[in-house]
Amino acid sequence: MQSSLGPVTSVIGAQWGDEGKGKIVDILASEYDVIARACGGANAGHTIVVEGEKHVFHLMPSGCLHEGKQIVLGSGLVIHLPTLMKEIETLEGHGISILDRLHISNAAHIVFDYHKEVDGALEESRPQPIGTTKRGIGPAYMDKAARTGVRMERLGKDLSKEMQSRVSSIKKIYGVDVDVETELKNIAEAQEKIGHCIIDTVAYLSEARTTGKSILIEGAQAVLLDIDHGTYPFVTSSSTTLAGALQGLGLPPMCVTSCIGVAKAYCTRVGEGVFDTEAEGGAQERLRERGGEYGSTTGRPRRTGWLNIDQLNIANATNGFTHWNVTKLDVLDEEEVIPVMINGKLEELAGWKSNTAGITSFDKLPESAQAYIKRIEAETGVSVGFIGTGPGREEMITRT
């Protein structure tokens, strides 16, 4: 597939997240040398199924399951050290070595435990909650913007005075206690485990490109959660578009050869905010149960609804997609009719009322399912190169 996608491919969520980006990244990773994640933090959750076993990653790119692939965590990330340590431990427990191929930006910021407490305090104080995951992402980015954040390059330094100096102000402003001893312990343990992995990743990626290495960029969250282009204020704290990913990695825009927009065949959202195509009653519950729509990061039930092609066009306008990956087509198998938002109006498309689970050839899809995919292509002007028909790595139709 790399021959048609080119040496620098990006995978970007086109809705409100949870679209199934991890699966397409996992499939493509075997053909790329470097898998890079650019922005966000442990508020992301990527779930893939390999040989019947579910893997959930919050910081590591999904492609890390592939032995020998170089893994980059870029400067746009905010990293909760205990979460990263746990993911490394999980990988090692499955016999997957990672430390010899993990490259962490020295400019990525650290999420401390107290950031998580501050996140919760801020959420509780809002008249209208945003629906944050309370993973400390927003407060960590607040420190970054205020130039008071702690970057990974300082992991091996003595940060005891730095941490102690924050105790009184954090308590005064947010009513949150800073456990200095625990924070310093987490730092020390991380330094011992991953200190040698912290490098200048901009230089690393530049050298990779100039020596002919291929790069797969794994986006986090999705376009409609972008801090600038999403449904503000119910958004995340980072830039989730392709441009944001390139900024977070320090890659030049002209190097990108393809950009895959990932969207469910329907739509979901976690937390508060507008949802024009939200389903009601039995339809919402039916989509949730068939799609297993519970957050991989929070476990919260997701709000479910129908595909909004107008929003896909907005996502395409801000990213310039070359392909769509439409996921979870099989979740719609029991629908008699399928509402879709097109030009501001809900239009009912014909359902197919037959099983598409596990189909790997487009020609073998029911005619109405083929028509559904073709309508997406016609309304967006972007070809659907990949169609997910189940959770397994092998349950994918490829049309590139």
Rank of each mutant, 00 (worst) to 15 (best):
A140C: 11
A140L: 03
A140R: 03
A140N: 01
Y141G: 03
M142S: 10
M142K: 00
D143H: 13
D143F: 03
D143C: 08
K144L: 04
K144Y: 08
K144P: 02
A146E: 07
A146M: 13
A146S: 14
A146V: 03
R147C: 02
R147A: 05
R147K: 15
R147G: 02
R147E: 03
T148N: 13
T148D: 10
T148M: 00
T148Q: 08
T148E: 09
G149E: 09
G149K: 00
G149I: 06
V150N: 00
V150W: 00
V150E: 03
R151E: 02
R151W: 02
R151D: 02
R151T: 05
R151A: 02
M152G: 02
M152Q: 07
M152S: 08
E153Q: 14
E153C: 11
E153F: 11
R154S: 07
R154T: 11
R154Q: 13
R154W: 08
L155N: 00
L155H: 04
L155S: 08
L155W: 06
L155R: 00
L155K: 06
L155F: 11
G156D: 14
G156H: 12
K157Q: 11
K157L: 08
K157W: 06
D158Q: 03
D158Y: 05
D158C: 04
L159E: 04
L159Y: 10
L159D: 00
L159N: 12
L159K: 06
L159C: 07
S160F: 01
S160T: 12
S160C: 00
K161P: 09
K161R: 15
K161S: 15
E162R: 04
E162S: 05
E162M: 10
E162K: 07
Q164Y: 09
Q164C: 05
Q164F: 10
Q164K: 15
S165P: 11
S165T: 10
S165Y: 13
R166G: 05
R166C: 04
R166H: 11
R166L: 07
V167H: 00
V167R: 13
V167A: 06
V167M: 06
S168Q: 15
S168T: 15
S168C: 08
S168L: 10
S169Y: 04
S169K: 11
S169I: 12
S169L: 02
I170Q: 02
I170R: 01
K171Q: 15
K171P: 04
K171W: 13
K171M: 14
K171I: 00
K172C: 10
K172R: 14
K172N: 14
K172V: 05
I173Y: 14
I173Q: 09
I173H: 14
I173P: 03
I173R: 10
I173D: 08
Y174L: 08
Y174Q: 03
Y174S: 01
Y174T: 05
G175E: 10
G175F: 12
G175R: 03
V176K: 03
V176Q: 08
V176F: 09
D177N: 13
D177R: 05
D177A: 13
V178G: 06
V178D: 07
D179W: 10
D179A: 12
D179Q: 03
V180M: 02
V180H: 04
V180I: 08
V180T: 10
V180L: 04
V180R: 02
E181T: 13
T182R: 15
T182W: 04
E183Y: 12
E183T: 07
E183F: 14
E183L: 06
